[in-house]
Amino acid sequence: MVEVADTAVRAGLSGPRHPADPARRREARAGYGLMSPALLLMVAVLALPLAALIVLSFWTQSGFTLDRTFTLANYWRLIAPSDREVEWMGLTFRLAYPVPAILIIKSLVMSLTATVAVILLAYPMAYFLAFRVHRNKAAWIILLTVPFWTSYLLRVFSWKVVLGYNGAINSGLMSLGIIDAPLEFLLYNPAAVTITLAHSWVSFIVLPIYVSLEKIDRSMLEAASDLGDSKWKRFRRITLPLSMPGTISAALLVFIPTVGDYVTPELVGGPGGTMIGSLVQQLFTKQNNAPLGAAVSLVMMLIIGAMVLIFLTLIGYWRMRARRAA
């Protein structure tokens, strides 16, 4: 994410500086030429559907008739206040239709937890791979990608087998005599969703973190030790900050798609583990209210966008401040 923004800025700086230069114009044309297949695909499968979604969110639907007059009613519905109080996890909602708001907050919390778990699991693995494995690195990397050889759906299902009523954990504990009856709190709750999400993404996230660690010049680490750092201090002062950009992009790579995940909560979440994706799906199908579904997904998208932006700004600010303070 950060790198992408960087490149864009650089490209923007060098692009229009000499607009009259014919060589540069030729280069720009060649660039667009190379980009055009991807660009066309993006327009066809991303920009156009997104535009359609935006348009749809300003319409209304009742039953099977679509009312094409422009209205903000869908958005208003998401925030319309009411005297009725709804309590959820200690939060009080005074909304006429509190379900989307609750699910949005819940999705964000679950996905943030999964992201933190993924980073905490993946970072040590990447560290081990980058600094402790000297021989057969390729073999280790292939081993890490083994989970990708099965489908995402199968991996989610296998968690059902592990956590289920007659699953691996319950039968294992029972045969050991630790419990008498199967534990029911393992499956069909937010925790199960978070565990499954974290597991599905870990091996995916090890690689970008590994790359950022592998890039660190070993003489930096030697220099830090030479200047009196213990191993832990050196990790905190050199390794961690230098691997931060890769780790942050990795975190965003987990956070952004998991907020809207639909399959995992459907399969292992049960009624308590529902996330925003399930609501959108229901609005589009069972509830027959595509315009409201469009509005919910757009609001979700804006919130994620805003969160990522705030996060990146804070990191930039924090870096600058750290520099000034030191």
Binding site: S219, A223, G228, S230
Partner: peptide, 13 residues
């Protein structure tokens, strides 16, 4: 890190 030596690295690090 506990030696009374310090080093100037070839790559400067």
């Amino acid at each position: 890190n506990r030696r009374p030596t310090n080093m100037v690295f070839q790559s400067y690090a």
